[in-house]
Design a binder for these strands. Structure first.
Lengths: 339, 339
DNA sequence: CTGAAAGCGCTAACAG
DNA sequence: CTGTTAGCGCTTTCAG
């Protein structure tokens, strides 16, 4: 085997036409079971590997769905991608994943690259994009799904929730439990658009209740790490020691804050309450367990996958873009005196 | 714009040949700056998107490197993939990622799928594969790199470390600190091959020192979650209360074990020591901080990426397969009485 | 159920 | 620096 065999070689070896070989490698095509079996065996013996690239060019179907996420290493996004992948796999589609690193400029670059591969649909995380990225997606000629957000001006389809509203639930939970002096720990809002939305939601919710919304600790670029969460808590305890409760932009930061309290002998929730976002595994396991909000990442992925599968099969309602809201749920635990 | 424009349309609009347009979209091709600029602008105006699929077919270069990892949602593998992606990106290569879910059968299926896309190289996690998977990789005709392991019979290139030896370091560390009755928490070894290797290494190291290697707590399928780590610790404390130290197959499980101690008022390390593997962020942040072993996941990715870039450029030594050992490092912290 | 001809959109190879 | 010709490996389309 000097050069890799093509369908032509398989056809010759099996004594049929190339077309018949092609049919033998698809599930639907009409061909007798015996012929298919024979061809498959011949191909196997020759070490034939089907060439998707040629198939894609001729059929003008890449079998790809391009997906961008801020970070691979985030349980929430990973769960969405996992569910999306499973659902699309069932529809014979493969996920082509790109990571934006929480950077809209990188997202733009990535989308440009991904589109050259002729994906049949595009799934992006969030509803904030550069102008050029928006234009590219709009002119891509394939379904676009924005996830993990509820954009004001959607590009196409949406499967997500409101990152601002989510903080309303959290502030409501905390005020119901009697907390008033509440702080927020988050990343640099110039980057993490969803985190910035959550911060905005926090400020708005505090103002609505006539509470002081100015206890905002900003750490570096997102994602906010556990270490940064701990550092932020240290600043908070040093500079605003009368703070009664802290909301972190996400659970890892909340956990970091919790550890800082442990190191200082500050009791949670007796001395200060802590809550996060994302319902990461750590929040249920930490001592005390952390109050959080579950955005149901797997549901988001599943719904997005289902939507795309329907759209590409063509039996989706062509009544314009779909908006699927996946309602997050507050999970009250010991760190805010609940559970 | 009814149908998407091709190079032909761009060529017509720009008043040049298709070939010149093709050249305008590559970096090396010889073409005057003015012409290139003009063509690029024309293409932009028409909303032209370069078609990689056609390019790939004709040039017989997909620009893909196929990569399989057990789980997307694992900081260690994610770090490897991130570093690999960066390095390959610099070489103009894109990562096509597949997740095996710690399942060799799924890995086999995935490799078959990925190979159809004509990747220029293949990077897999671990050195254990099904026979069919091994055959496919060997006959793929592209460089294969096994990572995160030091296989006895490598398929091709290797960038990794020994998962058995790593436990020798850990047991050495613990015995040096005076611990004798040491337990191991791990997943079902039928699945997680690297975890099974680490368990084997633990048993071997204990035996070498004449210590009892039978304190093995097995939880479910890998990856062992924080919750499962906690459950395993509960069993351990209930059934083998005289255990002096625990090694978990990975940090999340070690952290779960730590939380179980916290819930029970068992002091770490005074009553029992705990150590993990992977040097996940949580180990440095937890209270007490967890002793772990850093396998330098980013280095693995970087080295694998570098190797592939060299190999594909052709200026790598053609002296057979490369073996790059990335030496893990023990990080001693408070949970084993160090730090 | 099977086959022959044509061509998807791009680039290799050559010529100028 | 630019153009012409041919064809990558498969599938669409049409015949039988």
């Amino acid at each position: 085997m000097n050069t890799k065999p093509t369908m032509k070689e398989v056809a010759a070896a099996a004594g049929v036409s190339v077309m018949t070989v092609s049919r033998a490698f698809r599930s639907d095509a009409s061909i007798s079971d015996a012929t298919r079996e024979h061809i498959r065996k011949t191909a196997d013996d020759l070490g034939y590997v089907f060439d998707s690239v040629a198939s894609n060019l001729r059929s003008q179907r890449s079998g790809f769905v391009a997906v961008t996420i801020p970070s691979i290493n985030n349980a929430n996004f990973a769960d969405t991608v996992a569910a999306l992948t499973s659902r699309l796999d069932a529809a014979g589609l493969q996920v082509l994943l790109g990571r934006t690193n929480y950077d809209m400029a990188e997202e733009e670059r990535l989308i440009g690259q991904l589109l050259r591969r002729q994906p049949e649909a595009l799934v992006v995380t969030g509803g904030h994009h550069t102008e050029r990225a928006r234009r590219m997606m709009q002119k891509a000629g394939v379904p676009v799904v924005e996830t993990w957000d509820l954009p004001k001006a959607p590009l196409g389809h949406v499967v997500g929730f409101s990152n601002t509203d989510v903080m309303r639930f959290m502030v409501a939970h905390l005020t119901a439990r009697g907390y008033r002096r509440i702080a927020f720990i988050g990343g640099d809002s110039a980057y993490d658009t969803r985190g910035a939305d959550r911060r905005r939601g926090f400020v708005a919710a505090m103002e609505e209740r006539g509470l002081d919304p100015s206890r905002l600790i900003t750490v570096g670029r997102p994602p906010v790490s556990m270490r940064e969460g701990a550092a932020a808590m240290a600043i908070l305890l040093d500079t605003l020691p009368d703070t009664e409760a802290v909301v972190a932009v996400a659970d890892p930061a909340a956990f970091g804050a919790l550890t800082e309290c442990a190191r200082r002998g500050v009791r949670v929730p007796d001395d200060i309450a802590i809550a996060g976002f994302g319902n990461f595994e750590i929040s249920g396991v930490a001592v005390p367990a952390l109050t959080s909000i579950d955005p149901f990442p797997a549901r988001i992925g599943e719904q997005a996958g289902q939507l795309i599968a329907d759209l590409l099969r063509g039996d989706a309602t062509k009544n314009g873009p779909t908006l699927i809201e996946v309602e997050p749920q507050l999970v009250a635990r010991a760190s805010t005196g609940a559970g």
